[in-house]
């Protein structure tokens, strides 16, 4: 199902057939600090795209601008244009709530609600519609199965979600985001708080999920990027001539195999081989 294409437009941006996101000259600032600028890239449908790069280069910032989570931060502003399919994500007529329903997010630290496992999954469907109890039961089971958690929790759905292990909690958070039937799932270092076994399970899950969902993942783990993603974007920070703080920028975007075997930019090579933090 991968919409592969090696076409490049005049600016050298890799183009896909029917991309989910198209970012044109995107920059994000926090008050008067320009955190990241000049981002041009497309994100393909039904695949995993990874954002990598050293700390502070704006990976999370760009990720959060893809579902308008930045709207919640006072002072944050997105410049340029982000298209979600044909629509302008930041069109004044577009609803951030509707955007986030379609574009879910999984965070670095598992953040289940202090409610039961069942209620964690049921929350999203309940605020987005009026499902009956039996419809909810179906959604809860389906979501937990998709997140490979059903067998572990099916007998304790009414237990507190906080009684689960960290890895289980993170899969619960993934299940919770699947329950509102999104098209895209954004994941910001979803495994950084987990042990290697729990990490491997989530990675398997991502590979599983990309058949039905578009996934964008931020990671500091090169093996993870290489293992789960088909495309990789590499960011760095550069001293901004207009200020004394460093601004993030996109160095290179290409297929993961190319990025890891024979990247165009020497900085990409240095980073993926661990010669640059």
């Amino acid at each position: 199902m991968t919409a592969t294409s090696t076409e490049r437009n005049a600016q050298g941006v890799m183009e896909f057939i029917d991309p989910v996101f198209t970012l044109s000259d995107v920059a994000v600032s926090y008050s008067d600090f320009l955190a990241v600028s000049n981002v041009n890239l497309q994100i393909p449908s039904m695949d995993v795209t990874a954002f990598i790069g050293p700390s502070g280069c704006g990976k999370s910032t760009i990720l959060r601008s893809l579902n308008r989570t930045n709207d919640l931060i006072p002072g944050a502003k997105v410049h340029g244009k982000i298209s979600y399919h044909e629509a302008d994500l930041y069109d004044p007529k577009a609803s951030a709530v509707e955007v986030r329903r379609r574009i879910g997010m999984v965070f670095q630290k598992p953040n289940p609600f202090p409610k039961s496992i069942y209620e964690n999954i049921a929350f999203g469907p309940k605020v987005n519609g009026r499902p009956s109890k039996s419809e909810l039961d179906v959604i809860v089971e389906k979501s937990l199965r998709s997140a490979a958690l059903w067998d572990e929790v099916k007998d304790r759905l009414n237990d507190s979600a906080l009684s689960l292990s960290g890895g289980q909690q993170q899969r619960l958070c993934i299940a919770r985001s699947l329950a509102v039937d999104p098209e895209v799932i954004l994941m910001d270092e979803p495994c950084s708080a987990l042990d290697p076994i729990a990490t491997a399970r989530i990675e398997d899950l991502m590979i599983e999920l990309k058949r039905d969902y578009t996934i964008v993942i931020v990671t500091h783990n090169m093996q993870q990027a290489a293992r789960v993603s088909s495309y990789t974007a590499f960011f760095v920070t550069e001293v901004n001539p207009l200020g004394d703080r460093r601004t993030g920028k996109l160095v290179e975007f290409d297929s993961t195999s190319k990025m890891f075997s024979n990247p165009t930019d020497p900085r990409t090579e240095a980073y993926v081989t661990g010669k640059m933090g």
């Binding site: 919640l72 997010m105 965070f107 953040n111 289940p112 929350f123 605020v127």
Partner: peptide, 20 residues
């Protein structure tokens, strides 16, 4: 993080405040 989780599921500010 609780609020962000709610918003990421398409909850409104009121739903996040009163339900989460």
């Amino acid at each position: 993080a609780m609020r962000e989780a709610g918003f990421a599921l398409g909850a409104t500010r009121r739903e996040v405040a009163t339900k989460i």
